[in-house]
């Protein structure tokens, strides 16, 4: 099933945050959206999840017109299109396991949810998801006590519990240190490759986008100015996306880099991501 944006526009007062965007994303693609802050990346993602309403234009997923959904069918769409955030947006006072199980809310009876009654199957699925992301030992801690990287992985586990068809990630690694950033990005790639879930992620670092995404969309001032493979992202294209600094020189790609060059860290990251692949047992 293909996801399609047709002439999506969003205005805030006089300011146009997203200007007539047309994009088509086939199922299973890993897409990175890059651009300077304020280019409209976040607004675009939030509109896809319908956290924000587009001012005009339409969105389609297969035969469904996503942009006109309301009520229960809108919530079903939001369930199918999981989202993770820069600030994780977990419930800090609840334990990790419950936070993960909250991903099931749309699948289950509201009354049972309100009484905080979850089945053993759901507990199994939640712990399996946590295990897959390598944070199963934190299951009974409060989410607020975890580190940023751990919280983001809890958020991914919650997204997995939604059994989504699409995963949106709004700056998932902007608040993380390089090591945790790598773990989170590896997890996203793993989900994309293993379950065939479409992943659309906002990134502020160019090299991350290059190394993880098969397709890169560049945005500037609300417009899509680049749409292609990492190989096609030439220096000229980068300059168009990020603009140039005052001297007229192009942007130095290493300036946006968070790549890990410390050998020790690479080893640690290697075992972590290895852990993810070997422990992965929940397959949709």
């Amino acid at each position: 099933m293909t996801f399609e944006l047709r002439n999506i526009t969003r205005r805030f007062g006089d300011r146009v945050a997203v200007n007539s965007v047309n994009v088509e994303i086939p199922q299973g693609q890993m897409v990175g959206v890059i651009g300077r802050s304020g280019a409209g990346k976040s607004t675009l993602l939030r509109m896809i999840n319908r956290l924000q309403e587009p001012s005009s234009g339409s969105m389609h997923f297969g035969d469904i017109e996503v942009s006109s959904l309301k009520g229960a069918s809108l919530r079903n769409w939001q369930r199918d299109c999981a989202m993770i955030f820069q600030q994780f947006n977990l419930v800090p006072r609840l334990d990790v396991l419950t936070n993960v199980m909250l991903g099931r809310l749309n699948h289950r009876s509201t009354v049972l949810s309100l009484l905080n009654i979850f089945s053993d199957d759901e507990r199994l699925a939640a712990i399996a998801a946590l295990e897959r992301l390598g944070i199963e030992q934190t299951a009974l801690q409060r989410a607020g006590t975890l580190s940023g990287g751990q919280q983001q992985r809890v958020a991914i586990a919650r997204a997995l519990m939604q059994a989504p068809k699409m995963l949106l990630a709004d700056e998932p690694i902007a608040s993380l240190d390089p090591l945790n950033a790598k773990i989170v990005m590896d997890a996203l790639r793993d989900i994309n490759e293993r379950e065939g879930i479409t992943v659309v992620t906002n990134l502020h670092t160019l090299d991350t986008a290059r190394s993880y995404c098969e397709r890169i969309i560049g945005m500037a001032h609300g417009n899509v100015v680049f749409d292609g493979t990492p190989a096609e992202l030439t220096a000229a294209a980068v300059q168009e996306i990020y603009g140039s600094d005052r001297d007229g020189a192009g942007i130095d790609e290493t300036m946006t880099s968070t790549s890990i060059n410390i050998p020790a860290a690479q080893v640690a990251a290697g075992t972590q991501s290895g852990g993810i692949s070997t422990l992965a047992s929940a397959s949709a």
Partner: peptide
């Protein structure tokens, strides 16, 4: 109260009552 958890649950397709129950009440 902090509205970030609420946003997180909204993005997961939770209804208003569920968001109040799990994002607001614990806080």
């Amino acid at each position: 109260s902090d509205m970030k958890p609420d946003e997180g649950l909204r993005a997961a397709g939770a209804s208003w009552v569920e968001r109040v129950r799990f994002a607001i009440v614990p806080q």
